[in-house]
């Protein structure tokens, strides 16, 4: 049974700029998915749709049997979906552990001993106590990526969405991050959806959806000679 599905989803920023069309994907818990495609294929737009930051202009996104458009999208984002943004989107004036705690508080869920749990999550993504208490700008790209993953996990969502989670990382760190995602899917029954253009990522997931850029459909202007000639 899929936790999240896309049914004939299409998206256009305006009448002339259509980015996605007729997308039908199914996502289940306990599996790691990759959505791959070339630049401009609409991967980040699709992630925005999946994370509830915007709504499809066609079709529907169904979460747990319900149309995402019809549920409180703030609650959807703060309870059911954890997003690891490409640029991490962490608050620089807070420390790593405070960023994780902030997400816990934002969810409104009753989470006892937030600080302890946040430290455990950071430990799980292999950030020690010293790094956990550093402000974001004093962490490396890889370390920030781990904080972003810990933040996405902080309120125990069913789905983790990650936008190019390995894009800024060296190969060894990429592998570590992918191991973490695999562990979350297999051991904690999460649905992991990774948007990436990396073949390494595509090779290490359970299922891959390939997103191709929409071809521009232009109606050919009929040539004079193609015009129907009146019968003699």
């Amino acid at each position: 049974m899929s936790i999240l599905s896309l049914q004939n989803v299409g998206f256009s920023y305006n009448k002339s700029t259509k980015v996605l069309q007729d997308i039908n994907y199914e996502f289940e818990k306990g599996r790691v998915y990759a959505i791959v495609g070339r630049s401009g294929a609409g991967k980040t737009t699709l992630l925005s749709l999946l994370s509830g930051l915007t709504s499809p202009t066609e079709g529907a996104i169904i979460f747990d049997g319900k149309d995402v458009r019809k549920i409180d999208r703030y609650k959807y984002r703060s309870h059911y979906v954890g997003v690891v943004f490409q640029q991490f989107n962490l608050l620089p004036h807070l420390t790593a552990v405070e960023n994780v705690e902030l997400s816990m508080r934002a969810s409104g869920k009753h989470i006892p001993e937030k600080r302890k749990l946040a430290m455990e999550l950071l430990d799980k993504v292999e950030l020690d106590d010293v790094l956990a208490k550093r402000r974001i700008l004093k962490l490396s790209g890889g370390e920030q990526q781990r904080v972003a993953i810990a933040r996405a996990l902080s309120y125990n969502p069913d789905i983790i969405l990650a936008d190019e989670p390995t894009g800024n990382l060296d190969l060894a760190t990429q592998e570590e991050i992918m191991d973490i995602f695999q562990h979350l899917a297999k051991e904690e029954n999460k649905c992991i959806i990774i948007v990436s253009h990396s073949p390494e990522v595509a090779n290490s997931v359970d299922e891959v959806y390939e997103l191709a850029p929409l071809k521009e459909k232009r109606r050919k202007k009929p040539a004079m000679e193609d015009k129907v000639q009146p019968e003699n």
């Binding site: 930051l53 703060s78 997003v83 962490l90």
Partner: peptide, 12 residues
């Protein structure tokens, strides 16, 4: 940016 982050993580 802070507004963007806070609303993106689900704070109204």
């Amino acid at each position: 940016y802070e507004v963007g982050v806070l609303t993106a993580i689900g704070i109204k």
